[in-house]
Nucleic acid binder design. Structure first.
Lengths: 363, 363
DNA sequence: TCGAAAACTGTAAGCGCTTCCATTCTGATT
DNA sequence: AATCAGAATGGAAGCGCTTACAGTTTTCGA
């Protein structure tokens, strides 16, 4: 709401009056539409400058029937991924003249209402799969709002973009098996998000390919606390196992003590590694551990955490682009994009080539 | 832009027609303003429901002369701080019916233009100090846009919120001195941000209080790469020193080899520690290192990184609140808030009480 | 039963901008 | 000098909403 130093913001009428032209001409000059004489251009520019004038978006939006803004709905902003996603998104949007209106659903008591409200001030919405239930997404579609879902299985009428998960999980798991691990456990609840379910699917596929029994996932939240708690549980079971001999099945998912943990994210993995080591279990010798996301800590801890890197900024960029294509009507058919991920081998999986701080090894 | 399944979005006229009432009554029902009969309320609610109607924000904004949105300008979203800040902000804003329009300036070729544009679609703007030059901020003020600056020295006519820096830096530095360190170096460029300059000021004050000479800061960017490079330089100087005896001054800031590094952020500190250890220098025995921000990695590395935690979410929350107070006119006088920080002692400074993983110790 | 007050509803005037359409102006071409 | 195409400009109609104001109905006390 810019204005001269005094009073209310200047309007296009003020500019027109000062430039002694009609508002139509002022608009044409400012938007660069239609033919205008050099003289008019100059007068308008000067008047606008002098009055500190900027067109009111609400009025423009109302007239052109478009907001020139995107809505972005994220579950939260913890961890680096959402930040990177957001940066990639904002960057693309900014370069294409679209504003980004952000909404975070975690802790929001009325996500449906909030998103509906959001829909009334943007031209389309990008929804992260962990942020909203399918119902809300379908409501949006029903209201004819262009929607792109991220990290979510394709939805009729929506574009989708996500990162590849199953294949990398399978590859990672296979690598652990190749190096002699026998009792792997998947840590993290596949029900918590589509991505995690895909990771578990890849994990299961790798085991299945060897004819191994696929253990149930350890259904814990994807948090440090849960990782630590789970590791404590393992330690307790191990201690109990030691006391009673190697006899009966312990309480931790697998019938035997695991020699490898495939964790659904780095938080889980980092906390688990630390807790295990504190408890006297050697990583990677006694048990290997892998994570997902490649957070900064993953390359600073010792042993370095083997993990999977996702192109979050690129994901954001692509989501913005796909939404814009829809909004502008330059594409009608839905697209479903999957971006490749990258397995980053470090010492925690016991199979890293070399021993330095492997920045990235693509298998 | 909601709508019925077919055609264009429903307008208030459609609702009025269906409910057989005037648009005025429809508006009153939907906004809960003015008196309406139960019958009218019901008819309108049903019609709105049936038509999937949501008022167009642009039209409302135009009519009420307010956007009900805040602009937030951040330098980037790397690291956890900005994410936390943003979450705190969005949370408060959401709870108070304000949308958040985000702009990231890093890499933006025309920040001034972008921000000006932003100003035309929001009621006020929160600017992070690292995101924009003072000139742009003053431009906004000149255009009568309510502005709150974050992590920036107070600006005439703007509210400001920031975290305390100098005192914690002084406290941290004093602690190192108390434990026998003699040659401390400040790593990071005070010119890069107000916060960093404050941290250096605190560092300098602590040294000055002991009558020690205050070394020039090591003016490097606040990145992992810079931290590693600086540490490499230290190692080289040390090696050279060994070769030539302990004679001449080396190239690294201090006249003598430092026995402590006060780094401007955790990225610098983490990279420095890793590089030093790889080079055979013991941390904290040979040299102590501290960071700033308390990123996740700080508590997973070994030795744990001593650092300073800032209440970023709270900072965001407060910024949102201050802006809203200004926008709504409920406060006219500028306020300048400073939030307390918390020194987190871990092993890297060689003075942590106990040896476990100190979650947080407030001195 | 009447009248006044209260409750409710509708009419219409904007909010500031874009854009269609008509009009005026320019200068080149006959 | 008359004509005309095209460029430049202005008038005016919306875009969908809020809200003063006026009009209509209801309620309720006397």
């Amino acid at each position: 709401m810019p204005s001269g130093p005094t009073g209310k913001p200047a309007t296009i009428y003020d500019v027109a009056a000062l430039a002694q032209l009609s508002i139509a001409t002022v608009s044409r000059v400012l938007q660069g539409t239609g033919p205008v004489s050099a003289k008019a251009r100059e007068r308008v520019d000067q008047a606008a400058q002098q009055l500190n004038y900027v067109p009111l978006r609400a009025a423009r939006s109302l007239a052109v029937q478009r907001h020139e803004a995107h809505g972005l709905v994220l579950p939260d902003l913890a961890g680096p991924f959402y930040g990177d996603l957001l940066m990639g998104y904002e960057r693309w949007a900014g370069e294409h003249g679209q504003s980004v209106v952000l909404t975070v659903t975690h802790g929001n008591p009325h996500p449906a209402k909030t998103v509906r409200d959001l829909a009334s001030r943007v031209d389309g919405i990008v929804v992260h799969g962990n942020a909203l239930g399918l119902g809300v997404i379908q409501d949006l579609r029903r209201a004819n709002v262009p929607v792109v879902v991220v990290a979510h299985p394709p939805v009729t009428g929506c574009d989708s973009v996500r990162t590849e998960s199953a294949a990398s999980a399978e590859q990672l798991t296979t690598r652990l098996l190749d190096h002699g691990r026998q009792e792997l456990l998947f840590v993290g609840d596949p029900a918590s998000s589509y991505d995690v379910s895909q990771r578990y699917a890849g994990f299961a596929k790798a085991l299945g390919a060897r004819g191994l029994k696929v253990p149930e996932p350890e259904r814990v939240p994807l948090t440090e606390a849960a990782g630590a708690a789970f590791a404590e549980q393992l330690l307790a079971a191990t201690a109990a196992g030691r006391r009673t001999g190697s006899g009966g099945p312990d309480r931790v998912g697998s019938a035997r003590r695991p020699d490898g943990l495939v964790c659904a994210n780095d938080e889980l993995a980092l906390a688990a590694v630390q807790t295990l080591r504190d408890g006297g279990v050697a990583v990677p010798e006694d048990i290997v551990v892998t994570g997902w996301d490649d957070v900064m800590a993953a390359r600073y801890v010792s042993p370095g955490l083997t993990t999977v890197r996702q192109p979050m900024a690129e994901l954001g960029r692509l989501a913005a682009q796909r939404l814009h294509e829809r909004v502008s009507g330059e594409r009608t058919r839905a697209r479903n994009d999957v971006l490749p991920t990258e397995v980053v081998l470090r010492q925690s999986c016991g199979t890293a080539p070399g021993d330095g701080n492997n920045p990235a090894v693509n298998d």
